[in-house]
Design a protein around this nucleic acid. Sequence first.
DNA 1: GCGGAATAGTCAAGCCCTCAACTACGCTAC
DNA 2: GTAGCGTAGTTGAGGGCTTGACTATTCCGC
Lengths: 165, 165
Amino acid sequence: MTTEVSPATGAGHVPAGTRWLDDGEQLAWRAWLHSTQMLQDRLERDLVRSTGIPSAYYEILVQLSETPDRMMRMSELADRCLSSRSRLSHAVSRLEERGWVRRQECPEDGRGLLAVLTDEGFAALEAAAPIHVESVRTHLFDQLSPQQIAAMRDVGETLLRHLGR
Amino acid sequence: MTTEVSPATGAGHVPAGTRWLDDGEQLAWRAWLHSTQMLQDRLERDLVRSTGIPSAYYEILVQLSETPDRMMRMSELADRCLSSRSRLSHAVSRLEERGWVRRQECPEDGRGLLAVLTDEGFAALEAAAPIHVESVRTHLFDQLSPQQIAAMRDVGETLLRHLGR
DNA sequence: GCGGAATAGTCAAGCCCTCAACTACGCTAC
DNA sequence: GTAGCGTAGTTGAGGGCTTGACTATTCCGC
């Protein structure tokens, strides 16, 4: 995403009653939009450059690693990664090519599959994690006061409640 | 982007001294990560569904519309849209196919081109803007208190200062 | 003015994502 | 037990983005 909100337009062409953003809201909107885009972009580039793992794959590895058996149903994995099923399916195929994940039939449900983190996958994650966390610290936490971090969390959680998670 | 930070790993396998995230930081990180992803996703889908314009294109139209002559150098446009030059070049080509933008030679610099917003492009933006701003209100501003909005802006601006803009 | 470096923009290959169609299995009711 | 429907997951086509190589132009020092 990206996107400023109001066109440089005079009044009168658009449906009356549009609640345009005022100046403060415009500034807040641009600050949010640009900072999130730039930060995501920076973290992504750092991660790929230093570990060769795109963040979408990293997230999959993390979710699997946090599970007792290092395995999870494909759909649950998709949900946790905020990913569509199709996208996850493609991603797991590519992770299988790297030898980091394999698919395994699900005993309780003949339709289902389990994504299983291999030892190689776990090792790759273990190597990448310290690098990634350092990047997150450098570009996010080291820049903010404890109050700002608390506020960021509060805003994030409020939005998540509305968006449903 | 996406991405949890620490692997479910015992101590000892990774370089000593990694500054792992504590519980509060983890929660703040996940809240930020998931809320920004979900919100961007939601706004993008709303915009495409109701106007047919992806946010990357919308941003280009907005930037051009805010300029006195509705034209801008390709590189400046790329910078303002947080876009690579290649990406912008592709996007402008596609906007040209829609008849919303055209390229024009730059008088002062034979290497350069100007992207010019056409009347059709301006009309498309004018039609889309109220719909988009309503979506931003619904999913962002209507969910937050004035204090939260101020905090969001503060955090965003702080991060932008570090990331350079 | 000339040679080399820097800048503006484009293009092709490859990767990733989305959308919609598809297969396969499970569940329920009759 | 089988029809019909819902769920799990995959697949392929098509579009967008990134990277890196390429052309054209300008700038700068001499």
